[in-house]
Simulated assay, not measured.
Amino acid sequence: MSIVLGPNRYGKAETRVVRVDRDGPVHSLKDLNVSVALAGDLDEVFLSGDNAPVLPTDSQKNTVFAFARKHGIGEIEDFALLLARHFVDSQPTIHHARVEIEEYAWERVLVPGSEERHSFVRAGTEVRTALVHSEGTGGAETVVSGLKNLVVLNSTASEFHGYVEDEYTTLPPTRDRVLATEVTATWRHRGTATADYGESFRETRRCLLEAFAGTYSLSLQQTLYAMGRKALTERTELCEVRMAMPNKHHFDVDLSPFGLDNPNEVFFAADRPYGLIEGTVLTGDAPDASFAWN
């Protein structure tokens, strides 16, 4: 029986970098978590311990910090592409770079009567994401943007009935329920020539939220598809949307032991177990990009 080395990569995970741009009394803040993974002519590193092809992971970390200073940080997709291309273009043994970035949003704290703009408050739990693959300048590239921890809720306009019922079914059908979920969504760009990744992100997020709010839901699956469909219909720079949406169950509380009714107003919010709905929506002409999501 032969034993061989399969696909491999290595890198520096979760480099936390914060960049403060100081423009007089008005400051701006970028707060990122950057992960890098590199692949190429690395077999001998694994097979014999020959480190000649290796760019140390510490060097990768330092590159993130140096590029934050030299180039600044604009949209995270652009920063990820800049890093990924650098690693492939500058290292002859590296043929493929994967850069994943999470961005944590901060909002300004404004003091009445003051021109100072240097105080911030963390903006909730939502995280913006980007995943870039690059084979170097002129090579194959993909850009996947997204978000996670986006918690949304519809207090009505949601039903769930007509499902399979077997000997273990206890869930009653409902014609009016709370629909809540925590959206993880990623969307693939048709190429790397999107003019403004910031605008693309804001508008795609808007499409997802408007579709969630505007869809009369018979299932969370139906809502997921409506959200992806609206994003792809309105944002022509995109070709594929993937979503994971756990069903954050809200169950009516029985208040009859206390002599009270409950006309669909008081709920128990259960965090687990939960239904997990996952799905992909794509255009009919979506180009193949087998490594885009990995």
Rank of each mutant, 00 (worst) to 15 (best):
V99L: 12
N149G: 08
D252E: 06
E126D: 12
E165S: 12
R85P: 07
V34G: 04
L179K: 07
F267I: 08
E234V: 02
V17Y: 01
L29V: 11
V143H: 12
M245S: 00
P25I: 03
P257G: 05
I76Q: 12
E115C: 07
D288H: 10
A68N: 10
G136N: 10
G138N: 07
H118S: 07
R229Y: 00
V111K: 14
R177Y: 06
T192K: 08
K61A: 10
E165P: 03
V121D: 08
T236W: 00
S219P: 05
P25W: 00
D252M: 04
M1Y: 05
S134F: 14
T233H: 03
H133V: 11
I94T: 08
T125N: 15
T170Q: 07
N149M: 12
L218V: 15
E77M: 14
A231R: 01
G284W: 05
G136S: 11
L209V: 13
E199K: 06
L150Q: 09
S158V: 11
T283Q: 09
S119I: 05
G49A: 02
I277M: 11
T236F: 03
Y216F: 12
A226G: 00
F120I: 00
T57R: 03
T63A: 12
T186Y: 05
A292C: 09
P92C: 05
G279V: 11
N33I: 15
F268P: 00
N62H: 08
D252C: 01
R205G: 04
T169P: 01
I73E: 05
A123N: 13
R9D: 07
A195W: 04
A289V: 00
V45L: 11
N154A: 13
T186S: 13
L42G: 10
E141V: 13
A292E: 04
H96G: 05
M1Q: 10
F291S: 14
G40Q: 07
V266G: 03
N247P: 08
N154Q: 15
A123H: 15
S114E: 15
R85K: 15
M245P: 00
V34R: 03
Q222F: 02
I3M: 14
L83P: 14
K148M: 06
N149P: 01
R229G: 03
I277K: 02
R205N: 12
L81V: 15
A68S: 11
G72C: 02
R85Q: 15
R108F: 01
L83I: 15
D50L: 09
K248Y: 00
A66N: 13
A193H: 15
W106N: 09
G74N: 04
V132G: 13
N8I: 07
P53F: 08
V18M: 12
G124S: 02
N247R: 08
E234Q: 09
G74R: 04
Y216H: 12
V132W: 05
S90V: 05
E126R: 11
L179C: 14
V143I: 14
P263Q: 12
S119F: 08
T192H: 11
P287A: 15
R16Q: 08
G136P: 10
N294R: 08
F268V: 09
K61T: 10
S119L: 14
F120L: 04
D271C: 03
S28Q: 03
